[in-house]
């Protein structure tokens, strides 16, 4: 019986341990939910911020829409870094985020298979070309569809016919190109740059570029709220901004 009691105690301890890790950061931890496109600079920035402020920064990356949905379902995050302004605004209206503000901008580019048939924008609409986009729920997909919507109608229809996958996030789009499953995809310039060893980047003309704004918000009830706010501040004008520029992100528009 004593052994059973010990087992029960162990289970309880494990359960409380698990519980601890899934609640928002305690006094010495901040939980950050960040758009997948931010993974490289934000990872680097979080490491430095943690060292400088003697705090543990935990970042999880995903499609912005998915992260927002998780926050809406009550999965805790102290800071939300979105690849658009719409999702943070929605969360703010729902009383979940405190005054989101922009911290970076980005542009779209075509990531093409270096061995594939795509060398220019018109190539995307050629018959037989396989194109991957983000799904229309995820910012990179919305932006790409905005850009495509500005093309002349025949080209637009032909291109959309070539879309063979709607990926749940930008990394998925890139992965389809890198693996050769797709000939090209529309991604952020920053992702194309990070994968430049694997993909050929084709710039999109300025006339097609949508305004891509990254907004950051601190969760209502975040703790420690001061540190979370300072983390966002650093992205706007501190060490974080430095990492973002280095990765190809633009300044706040």
């Amino acid at each position: 019986m004593r052994r059973l009691a010990a087992a029960v105690a162990l289970c309880a301890a494990l359960a409380s341990g698990c519980g601890g890790s899934s609640s928002a950061g305690g006094p010495d931890r901040i939980d950050v939910a960040a758009a997948a496109s931010l993974s490289d600079p934000v990872t680097a920035y979080a490491r430095q911020f943690g060292r400088d402020h003697d705090v543990e920064v935990r970042v999880r990356f995903g499609g912005s829409d998915e992260l927002a949905a998780q926050i809406r379902q009550g999965v805790p995050a102290d800071v939300f870094l979105s690849a658009d302004a719409v999702l943070p605004a929605e969360l703010a209206r729902a009383g979940l985020l405190d005054r989101p503000e922009p911290f970076a901008s980005n542009r779209l580019a075509i990531a093409a298979d270096p061995a594939g048939p795509v060398r220019s924008l018109p190539d995307l609409a050629r018959p037989g070309v396989v194109v991957a986009l983000g799904s229309d729920g995820v910012p990179v997909g919305k932006y790409a569809r905005h850009a495509i919507a500005r093309l002349p109608q025949p080209q637009r229809v032909a291109l959309l016919r070539n879309v063979k996958s709607s990926e749940p996030d930008v990394k998925g789009v890139l992965a389809k190109v890198v693996s050769g499953a797709a000939d090209a995809g529309i991604v952020y310039v920053t992702d194309a740059r990070a994968a430049r060893a694997e993909v050929h980047t084709v710039a999109l003309p300025r006339s097609l570029q949508p305004a891509i704004r990254y907004d950051a918000g601190v969760a209502v009830g975040a703790s420690p709220a001061g540190l979370a706010r300072r983390f966002v501040e650093g992205l706007r004008s501190g060490a974080g901004a430095h990492y973002l520029r280095a990765a190809g992100f633009g300044p706040v528009p």
Partner: peptide, 24 residues
């Protein structure tokens, strides 16, 4: 998702559709 991607009517099976609608 990795091999077939996700496209309505072509490769978006029920679990992929659930995942895609989860956020929107």
């Amino acid at each position: 998702l990795m091999f077939a991607g996700s496209l309505q009517g072509v490769s978006q099976t029920l679990p992929l559709a659930i995942y895609a609608s989860f956020a929107t």
